[in-house]
Write a protein that binds this DNA or RNA. Structure first.
Length: 559
RNA sequence: GUCCCAGUAGCUCAGUGGAUAGAGCGGUUGCCUUCUAAGCAACUGGCCGCGGGUUCGAAUCCUGCCUGGGACGCCA
């Protein structure tokens, strides 16, 4: 149980008691909010309940704060409960309790920060899902990093998470991709061939064609065109998906499942979803096409699901896909992470989900906004159509996985951001990535020295950790569990890097002010206690960096 | 024209109903005999885009305007 919840419960009891005593007279009590005050002088936690209760209680808020505070007992966790003007109640944690948490963190190890907030509910995070017609573009890197970190946090917060990539392997874009590979294949073998009008121009197409020639030779030339395109398309698609998988792996993004769009048609999810919409009266035929009446459900216009050619649209398969997520695979909650260019698609998807009798709040679409790449003051162009686009792979090669992930994570998903390649590349104090990792490395080198000297600190007494820097470090470590819940609840992974900075600051301050392994034998007891704190901090750093998908280096050298 | 996102320190961004608005970078100045100076300490720097409203209390909520980016297809 989080301390925050303990305090919340204690306030609730106090209200009850005040009621019984006749000291408080209200009909209804607003929800109890316990927050972290900005100013450390106000303690570890605070509530503004008296301020919000004052009107209903027809009383002065400060007086109410006194009435309630007097009825909140102190205890093992809470050292003091103080009313404060104009009507807050401030709570300070007990130093002994804080010190004891060092042992608790060490005992928790890699499960430190985990909670059962999610109650093992089935949740899917679907992200990236780039069409397998080309390598992953830098524009998708942000969504990839956000999705993977969010999934990590949801897992730590107790959800049963599935990370999924939706492979759009049906539809007209794929057809253009197949034909492009076919054309390059023929050209490479000296046959006349033109890229289709909507074809893909990137060099990677020729690369795939060359790979196919190396493996299969000229044999596709013996087939008639439609058969050859189908056969070579199958091979090319698998190669492309494998390339995408490798690209994403390079930025530390891995999936539990790669879901094929074509499966929706094979397994009749498409038929079932359309039948359901038809039953609900949500489909209508008009000018030869089949339309989804999304206007009736709040969208600003209707949308075609089956073209007059009889081909289903992308929207239709997305409806079937969400039918599959909720009904086929019983996910209680689904989070889709889409690029900014899909924002217009959100209202109709929400409408379609509602039309299939799925509570719309169970589908959350996060839009990962545009990223402007810069190199110092200069804007870096990244254009897919021209063929010379900046790929995710190029970005990782230039900047490195850790800096990439850190910078993408540090910004709220819903806001457009600038990514400065120059700043992210600099391996210097200018780069906050190294500030965090350096704290972990300093931490590791203390533990290594202790190990080299065979210092056994198992008997260390954590109650000796009573300096402000030690207690601040403990306090900061202990915020991780509630931070993870916050990230999971609000779907805001950008809090992680900011927390990591604060944890690193607390550690660096401790490091500067509290010599851990002392040369003086008189300090032996304190050395053992501090080693326990360092071991606990190591866990907190490791957990934080792992959640962000970053590496936690034991050594860092200037080059 | 409609819809979405944003406007906070010189730059990049946190803070989204509370108490004195923060961080990193930049700029100025100090600190390495002792677990790594990729660190620490100090200073510098703000009509929180503008106007109105709601509230005991607004950077945060509502509304109008201004500025920038994006989306509006029987493409995906």
């Amino acid at each position: 149980m989080l301390v925050r919840d303990t305090i919340s419960a204690a306030i609730s009891n106090a209200l009850e008691r005040a009621h019984q005593d006749g000291a408080l007279n209200v009909d209804s009590v607003p929800s109890i909010e316990v927050e972290r005050p900005n100013n450390p002088e106000h303690g570890d936690f605070a509530t503004n309940l008296p301020l919000r209760l004052a009107r209903a209680a027809r009383s002065n808020p400060l007086h109410l704060a006194e009435v309630i505070a007097a009825r909140v007992p102190t205890g093992p966790e809470i050292a003091s409960v103080t009313p404060a003007a104009p009507g807050f109640i401030n709570f300070r944690l007990n130093d002994h309790w804080l010190q004891d948490q060092v042992e608790a963190v060490r005992a928790a190890g890699d499960s430190f920060g985990a909670s059962d907030f999610g109650a093992a509910r089935k949740i899917m995070v679907e992200f990236v899902s780039v069409n397998p017609t080309g390598p992953v573009h830098v524009g998708h890197a942000r969504g990839a990093v956000l999705g993977s970190a969010l999934a990590n946090a949801l897992h730590a917060a107790g959800y049963a998470v599935t990370r999924e990539y939706y492979v759009n392997d049906a539809g007209s874009q794929m057809e253009a991709f197949y034909r492009s590979v076919w054309a390059r294949y023929r050209q490479a073998l000296g046959q006349p061939a033109d890229l289709p009008d909507n074809g893909y121009h990137g060099d990677y197409i020729a690369g795939i064609a060359a790979d196919i020639i190396a493996a299969d030779g000229r044999r596709y030339l013996d087939m008639d065109d439609p058969a050859a395109i189908r056969a070579i398309g199958d091979v090319a698609r698998e190669k492309m998906v494998a390339l995408i998988r490798d690209d994403l792996d390079a930025i530390g993004v891995r999936f539990d499942n790669w879901f094929s769009e074509r499966q929706l048609f094979r397994d009749a999810d498409y038929d079932r979803a359309m039948a359901r919409l038809r039953q609900g009266g949500h489909l209508a035929e008009r000018s030869g096409a089949l339309w989804f009446n999304s206007t009736a459900l709040g969208d600003d216009r209707d949308n075609v699901v089956v073209r007059s050619s009889g081909e289903p649209t992308y929207f239709a398969s997305d409806i079937a896909y969400h039918f599959n997520k909720f009904y086929g695979r019983s996910f209680e909650r689904v989070i889709d992470i889409w690029g900014a260019d899909h924002q217009g698609h959100v209202p109709r998807m929400k409408a379609a989900v509602a039309a299939m009798d799925i509570a719309p709040e169970n589908l959350t679409v996060l839009i990962s906004q545009m990223v402007t790449l810069k190199r110092g003051a200069e804007t870096v162009r990244a254009s897919k159509r021209t063929g010379d686009f900046v790929t995710l792979r190029e970005l990782v090669d230039e900047v490195g996985l850790d800096a990439c992930r850190y910078f993408f994570l540090a910004r709220a998903a819903s806001t457009q951001m600038e990514f400065d390649l120059e700043l992210a590349t600099k391996e210097s104090s200018e780069n906050p990535v190294y500030y965090v990792q350096y704290a972990h490395a300093r931490n590791a080198s203390i533990l290594k020295l202790a190990a080299d000297r065979a210092i056994d600190y198992a008997a260390g007494d954590v109650r000796l950790l009573d300096s402000p820097h030690e207690l601040t470090l403990i306090r900061t470590m202990l915020r991780l569990p509630e931070l993870i819940v916050q990230v999971a609840e609000n779907l805001e992974p950008h809090h992680l890097p900011h927390y990591a900075m604060e944890l690193a600051t607390a550690f660096h301050h401790f490091y500067e002010n509290c010599r851990v392994i002392s040369a003086n034998p008189d300090d032996n007891a304190l050395t053992l206690a501090r080693l326990k704190l360092v071991a606990a901090a190591q866990i907190a750093f490791h957990r934080t960096l792992t959640l962000m998908g970053m590496t936690a280096p034991d050594r860092m050298e200037r080059t």
